[in-house]
Write a protein that binds this DNA or RNA. Structure first.
Lengths: 175, 175
DNA sequence: TACGGTATGTAGCAGTTGCTACATATCTAG
DNA sequence: CTAGATATGTAGCAACTGCTACATACCGTA
């Protein structure tokens, strides 16, 4: 019983835009509602609670980002891990993906604090990303976990303005 | 003019305990004050603003964790990168360090959202950690950036309950 | 003993939080 | 045509946010 529910989907799109622009963990109902052209009252009505809203919103965002990833790097196997890593890091630093990275790090932070909602979403997203990588990595499924972990590390480095460390790390990945 | 200011230091210790137990980004003045045996009024008086408090608190926490790291793994050079990584990941998963990791991921999240205070602290912490690693890594300064980035990645994997990916990644680091 | 900085308690302000009560519209099925 | 679900607006609640005004205490110096 997959119910697309166009109303909710429209809301989620507007909410996603707002969260990508203003952050996830600091988002509160009233500003979100304003951005979506409704009231906090309506958000609770449709999603039951803020937590319910966040759960659906994270699904929506994950699907959105997955589409973007496929479009940016088609599923063809690289011959060099270093090249793959370089392309991905470049992608993550692009204006298109930066907002998603910010939300992603918000998810991580909330998950680490014990939020089941965020941990669940993060867990699923990682599985999708792992598959995505396995299709492109020279070593397929065998190389994906390592590459994925390294890429996540680069997100942290970049977030605190340590791009130089990122850059030195990825060239040394396979030497 | 280094002013240790024992009053502030005592406050910071209590505040650090509270933040390690309850999270950084969700911490507000009144609960913190209660944990430190004062009032929000006094915290503002001593630190000027919440942001000022956070800045000093992050310094305090960073120094505290640096001590813990030195105590846990003395500065002796490993002969195997895999062994070093394994020990560090084990350390980061220990009950002693888990609270610091949670705070660390809070710092990352806030830094990514553009907080100068958090980005600055995160930047400095990474430099300290890089030095720490260089003294223990088989390849010294040449190997530290790679190892550091990989370790940061493992923190994210673990946070979303994907320890299996972490484990597969670190055994493949040097093969 | 009077004075001036340091320190601290009590109240409070204006704004925000997630969420609810209640009334009312709109739409759909019998 | 009418009953019941679906949807939406208006108000409001109690708790909490960072921060400030103000009055008062302490405490070393002159």
């Amino acid at each position: 019983m997959p119910q697309p529910d166009p109303k909710k989907t429209a809301l989620l799109s507007a909410l996603a835009d707002h969260v990508l622009a203003h952050g996830l963990n600091t988002a509160s109902l009233r500003p979100m509602a304003a951005a979506a052209g409704t009231s906090d009252r309506m958000l609770i009505y449709h999603f039951g609670s803020k937590d319910g809203l966040i759960a659906e919103l994270l699904d929506h965002l994950a699907a959105q980002m997955a589409l973007g990833l496929d479009a940016a790097i088609p599923p063809e196997r690289y011959t060099s891990e270093a090249e793959l890593l370089k392309d991905i890091v470049g992608l993550m630093r692009s204006d298109v993906f930066q907002p998603y990275i910010r939300v992603w790090l918000d998810i991580i932070s909330a998950a680490a604090q014990g939020s089941q909602t965020h941990q669940q979403a993060g867990h699923d997203i990682m599985n999708v990303y792992l598959d995505w990588l396995a299709k492109r990595h020279p070593d397929g499924e065998d190389g994906a976990p390592f590459a994925l972990t390294l890429i996540e590390g680069t997100l942290i480095m970049d977030a605190v303005g340590q791009r130089a460390i990122t850059d030195r790390a990825i060239v040394q990945a396979k030497d």
